[in-house]
């Protein structure tokens, strides 16, 4: 299995997606930290400066990862999943033999590793820029790093539905990219609708990405130095069990569908 996963990484050699991921994980934190720095004012209290670091971190999670990462992982997944189709290499793998389920597992593992890598890169660069631009006090690094790691796993699982659609449609990279963006826009739209009409708050956590975002917010809130949230915001937070069930169902259902669709078009 390790060889299969290593193979998936080797197949991406010279593909521009990898430097693109690194570049994006560099630029977005810079943007986030810079905007946090702009809103600092003259307050130099420790609590406030810690709050700025927390703000940068939550913005990184909320915008950079919740909405950008599924797009990125969707594009990456389409490259990995279409690779065998486009290059007619599936037959070479089958005669080794490599089963479809093992191949899917390897491809998803590669997506997961990239997901975690991107999340950790984001965090590392965000911390680095906070230090360079003096945009807050860096603290609670261990927790934030570990949380980024968990978040990386969560967001990869939350991205699986879009990968299912990419495999189902089995079209070009452009369609896959559009599907990934559509998924991000869908999440944004649901979030916007709920913000307008809070009675719909219960449906928001049925969406894996938003559920993960809200669950993360809840977890972060316990650690934050600065806690200025409206009481309505607490309605958004799902319980741990709810979050695990939603992501668990997403994972199982997506894997079953992927296996079914991928087998269909490689038969």
């Amino acid at each position: 299995m390790l060889n299969l996963i290593a193979g998936e990484f080797a197949k991406l050699k010279r593909k521009k997606i990898v430097p693109f991921i690194v570049l994006l994980s560099l630029l977005f934190p810079l943007l986030v930290v810079y905007s946090s720095k702009m809103g600092m004012g003259n307050d130099t209290s420790v609590e406030f400066l810690k709050g700025r670091f927390d703000l940068s971190y939550t913005m990184m999670l909320g915008y950079g990862l919740v909405f950008l990462e599924p797009c990125l992982l969707g594009i990456l997944a389409s490259m990995l999943f279409f690779m065998e189709r486009d290059n007619d290499t599936f037959k070479n793998l089958c005669v080794i033999p490599v089963t479809t389920s093992r191949l899917i597992a390897a491809k998803l593992s590669a997506v997961l590793i990239y997901g975690i890598f991107y999340t950790l890169c984001n965090f590392t660069f965000m911390t680095f820029f906070t230090w360079i631009l003096n945009a807050g006090i860096i603290y609670d690094i261990g927790f934030k790093l570990a949380f980024s790691f968990i978040f990386g796993i969560g967001i990869t699982i939350a991205t699986l539905p879009v990968i299912v659609f990419i495999i189902y449609f089995n079209k070009s990279y452009l369609i896959s990219t559009l599907l990934s963006f559509f998924y991000a826009i869908l999440n944004w739209s649901v979030l916007s609708i709920v913000e307008i009409n809070l009675s719909l708050v219960k449906i928001i956590n049925l969406f894996p990405t938003l559920c993960l975002m809200n669950w993360s917010s809840k977890k972060m809130l316990d650690r934050m130095a600065d806690r200025h949230l409206l009481p309505e915001a607490y309605l958004l937070f799902p319980s741990d069990i709810w979050a695990f069930v939603v992501l668990g169902i997403t994972l199982v259902l997506s894997l079953l569908l992927m296996l079914n669709f991928y087998k269909k078009w490689t038969r």
Binding site: G7, K11, K13, N87, T89, F90, K91
Partner: peptide, 25 residues
């Protein structure tokens, strides 16, 4: 086996391509 057209990864060299399959074997 060789079935139909040769199927390899276009962004890799011959050695890199064979390396992937060799490891899997």
């Amino acid at each position: 086996s060789l079935i139909e057209s040769p199927g390899f990864y276009p962004n890799l060299t011959a050695t890199e391509n064979l390396k992937i399959f060799a490891k899997l074997r």
